[in-house]
């Protein structure tokens, strides 16, 4: 008898995997369906991918999404890196500081989204890419922070001391030792922040202005207007991008310590 194996857990686990992946498979396979009705299969085709490439609305939404994710993830990663360097060593209010940093993870997104919307409107700020970048930066901070913090945690404090002992001042020690060792964590954090921003729907839904639709917002309004195979194709593209980026971040996080 293997002490670690419990009856039925294997069967249930496989069932859960099916549950998790069947919708994805269905979505992806329908995106290659030539038939207009989106649910009746005729034959395989790349028609819909050609259509989304040619659709100017999707092009501009894609561009907005990428610019938004790039700006928000970069800002969030820099901010999170600084914060992680501060919280690497214990200090009296560290628990409180970390709770504040992780607040965006706990708060219901819809609440923060409408609250931010009202703030921008009350201040008379024009809604658009700028307001979305600000809001996305805030909720991306914990996603960038956690991998960097985890990497720092696993890093021996004596590396920094050794560098200073060998005549590197604080800045040189950071550049020659801490930063290279931290790099996989920083990249993992950036990637997760990027994916989070790219996939975000709710905040963008409330904060996008005229002409600054993002891809998820475009998809939502398209679904509401009626299901088309085009949505399947664009959704598949989003899915593939997320999976690639998350796998990359997972790999970076496991990189040699």
């Amino acid at each position: 008898m293997n002490i670690r194996r419990f009856p039925m857990t294997r069967e249930i686990s496989l069932l859960v995997l099916v549950y998790l992946y069947v919708p994805v498979v269905v979505l992806v396979s329908y995106s290659f369906n030539a038939n207009r009705t989106a649910t009746v299969w005729s034959h395989a085709s790349l028609d819909w991918y050609g259509r989304i490439l040619a659709n100017p609305a999707i092009q501009s939404a894609t561009q907005n999404s990428l610019v938004l994710a790039l700006c928000a993830a970069t800002a969030a990663t820099v901010i999170a890196l600084l914060a992680a360097l501060a919280t690497a060593r214990a200090f009296p209010s560290r628990g409180g500081v970390e709770a504040v940093l992780n607040m965006p993870l706990i708060l219901p997104e819809i609440v923060v989204a409408v609250a931010t919307l009202m703030l921008f409107v009350a201040l008379g700020v024009q809604l658009g890419l700028g307001t979305m970048i600000l809001a996305h930066t805030a909720f991306c901070i914990p996603f960038a922070y956690l991998p960097i913090r985890a990497r720092l945690e696993g890093m021996n404090q004596s590396y920094g001391e050794a560098a200073q002992d060998l005549y590197a001042n604080r800045f040189r020690s950071f550049r020659r030792v801490t930063l290279p060792l931290l790099w996989p964590g920083i990249m993992a954090g950036f990637t997760l922040a990027f994916v989070t921003s790219l996939d975000d729907f709710l905040t963008s839904f409330f904060l996008s202005g005229p002409g600054t639709t993002t891809l998820p917002v475009y998809i939502f309004s398209s679904i509401k207007a009626g299901i088309t195979p085009e949505i399947n194709a664009i959704s598949t593209v989003m899915l593939v991008i997320s999976v690639l980026l998350v796998s990359l971040s997972f790999f970076l996080g496991r990189l040699r310590r």
């Binding site: 021996n156 004596s158 590396y159 001391e161 050794a162 560098a163 200073q164 002992d165 060998l166 005549y167 590197a168 001042n169 604080r170 020690s173 030792v177 290279p180 060792l181 040699r256 310590r257």
Partner: peptide, 20 residues
Amino acid sequence: APPFRRPVNTVFQNYALFPH
């Protein structure tokens, strides 16, 4: 004086060799 201005060097208990 900070460590980088002292004419001493340390052999650390866990060696602290830079892994990269």
